[in-house]
Design a protein around this nucleic acid. Structure first.
Length: 205
DNA sequence: CCCTGATTCGC
DNA sequence: GCGAATCAGG
């Protein structure tokens, strides 16, 4: 496969949307994530706002290899006011709609509690009752028993931000397990928070 | 071990 | 220019 204009276009688009190199590679097909990353660099659109691979930020200017002096360091007096606080999340989450969270007893989580959820992109008010598959709920219950129970301050892009308990009491914590790539929750909670539009509709009540 | 992006370097 | 191998980190 070669980098045709179309493929490069797709690459730019997805990279801009914050898609990971592997996701882009998968989408394009015929290339590995390495190829994608390599291309991204050659195109000069490397640094994105948020990359989970913290390796990026960490080693912005790491090792100096042997051989002659590298090109003169670019005198970057770049005057940048406020470049990109928020790159472009919006576009993500296509055929998925968030559902209202329920606690173990099927009781809707209070608005107050929802407001506390730091959450990434998707957390609309979304009223309406919901119906989550028994399997998913069971899985959540199970997971919550073994959750890490971290505090708000311990939340990161890699920890499940699913809240458990009442924020007005001491019995409140966040799941904290490893998140599903690109999602704000762990696998189990992603299963309850996100459901394909198709499976939601026509699920008789 | 899974994943992420970054860099190197032979092709 | 390309991308596998490798690295560095979560």
């Amino acid at each position: 496969m070669s980098w045709t204009d179309e493929r490069v276009e797709t690459l730019k688009k997805m990279w801009g949307e914050g898609q990971s190199a592997s996701q882009i590679a998968k989408e394009l097909g015929g290339v590995t994530r390495n190829a994608v990353i390599g291309k991204v660099h050659r195109l000069g659109l490397s640094n994105r706002a948020a990359a989970s691979g913290a390796a990026a930020a960490t080693k912005a200017a790491p090792k100096e290899k042997p051989a002659a002096a590298t090109k003169a360091a670019a005198p970057k007096a770049a005057p940048k006011p406020t470049p990109a606080p928020t790159p472009a999340p919006a576009a993500a989450v296509p055929a998925v709609k968030e559902v209202v969270e329920l606690d173990e007893n099927g009781i809707p989580i209070s608005a107050a509690r929802r407001a506390i959820i730091p959450a990434g992109q998707p957390l609309p008010p979304q009223p309406s009752a919901n119906e989550i598959s028994p399997e998913a709920l069971a899985k959540v219950s199970e997971v919550e028993k073994g959750a890490k129970r971290i505090s708000l301050m311990e939340l990161t892009e890699k920890t499940c931000k699913w809240p458990v308990g009442d924020p007005a009491t001491d019995d409140f914590w966040f799941c904290g397990l490893g998140v599903q790539a690109g999602k704000p929750y762990c696998e189990a909670h992603v299963g309850v928070a996100f459901q394909p539009m198709s499976s939601r509709r026509d699920r008789r009540r």
